[in-house]
Nucleic acid binder design. Structure first.
Lengths: 213, 213
DNA sequence: GGGCGCGTTGGACATTTGCGCAATAGGCTC
DNA sequence: GAGCCTATTGCGCAAATGTCCAACGCGCCC
């Protein structure tokens, strides 16, 4: 394969690893899979990454960090906290892009036995929570929201979102995908003393499937 | 090893598999691990289970079903819906018994690629949701609760519980373990129009760790 | 108590895995 | 264009894995 500058090759490997991870799952991704995906030899991977765990953690880190950063940038354009929360739910795509959320499911499971993966997933989950907490704190300062403990509220909102998305992705058919966003947004309004509908996330077709579904 | 009647041997294998799964994780459990755990040969496992996937799904099914059934039995002793909800949160041990919840994390992750595991985890998650939904419906009939859509409320309560427990187990230190129960119970009260503290789950030491923690 | 059924053995087998290493070759510098 | 640095190769290696199978021996039935 063509010779590449190290930095470029390194990101090519990460990109290839991500492609395989989304196709076969984090746990089932092997050195040879990544090499084949790139069209190079397997030895090359170990020239850039000390171990497979490293590569998996770095790859997951890149995918998840980018997702977070995109949301942060989008939110930063909001003029007030309520607008930023609206953006938060509007751009929450993890549940719709199954592969991205599946990576989170893999990470949470692997966290118990892969220290590098655990450190990454914890750091990024905390970052998501902090993003919410800071927005809430700002909203309280703006007097558009009321919240006794933004830190706790942020954990609850994020956890409800993840818990619902989990069902939607892992058990297709249990929960309507739009309900994941709508229910989380509605709960957020309650939690922050906002009027119903204040977080104007797309709410079309919010209909949960009946007990028989 | 001593000869056993097939039914007995079969459950011995399942029990051994569970023991290994809780120690090494679902994905990392091997035929030889299970055989060693039982003190028998590895060939014996395949005499009772067609494939490793089968065994993993059956073992997870047994553990999770038993957990659910214990809760159901405990709840059935409640005299009204509120009492049953209190029992529900009081006996919710999955977050405290890390190994049990870790199995759920493994199952949700593996669900994407192991049909047998997905079917089991979905069926059991739905059963948990239904248990909640039926209790809520009963509470509404008793006029002690108000809820426009018990089915949806049940999904939200369960998802918040799972989402919080997920953080507590996968990322030790992020969320206080008691907060998982307390926050979920408090949310349930809000969702069902119950007075604060109506669900008298153990609430001691509910203190979330600060942003620096 | 002898014989038979089947629970059980324990290793064979092919495959896959992470990782390492000596050899190769591509491209930049002088 | 020569030479050197290093990116890249491609195989080797040991360990582990799921699955299969022929032989073995325990315990029940006649």
């Amino acid at each position: 394969m063509a010779r590449m500058p190290p930095a470029e090759r390194r990101s090519a490997i990460v990109e290839a690893a991500l492609r395989v991870m989304t196709r076969k799952g984090m746990a089932a991704t092997t050195v040879r899979d990544v090499a084949d995906q790139m069209g190079t030899s397997s030895g090359l991977i170990h020239h850039y990454f000390a171990s497979m765990d490293d590569l998996l953690a770095v790859a997951f880190d890149q995918a998840a960090s980018q997702d977070l950063q995109l949301t942060q940038v989008a939110m930063s354009r909001g003029r007030d906290a309520v607008e930023r929360l609206t953006t938060f739910f509007g751009t929450y795509t993890r549940a719709e892009q199954d592969w991205a959320f599946q990576l989170w499911l893999d990470a949470w499971s692997e966290a118990a036995r892969r220290p590098a993966v655990r450190a990454t997933s914890q750091r990024l989950n905390v970052a998501w929570q902090r993003l919410l907490a800071e927005t809430i704190t700002a909203g309280v300062a703006e007097a558009t929201m009321t919240c006794a403990d933004p830190h706790s509220s942020a954990w609850r909102i994020l956890s409800l979102l993840d818990g619902l998305a989990l069902q939607a992705v892992a058990h297709e058919g249990s929960i309507d995908r739009h309900a994941v966003i709508a229910w989380s947004a509605a709960y957020t309004e309650t939690e922050l003393g906002l009027p119903e509908g204040a977080i104007a996330a797309p709410r079309a077709q919010v209909r949960s499937m009946g007990p028989s579904g």
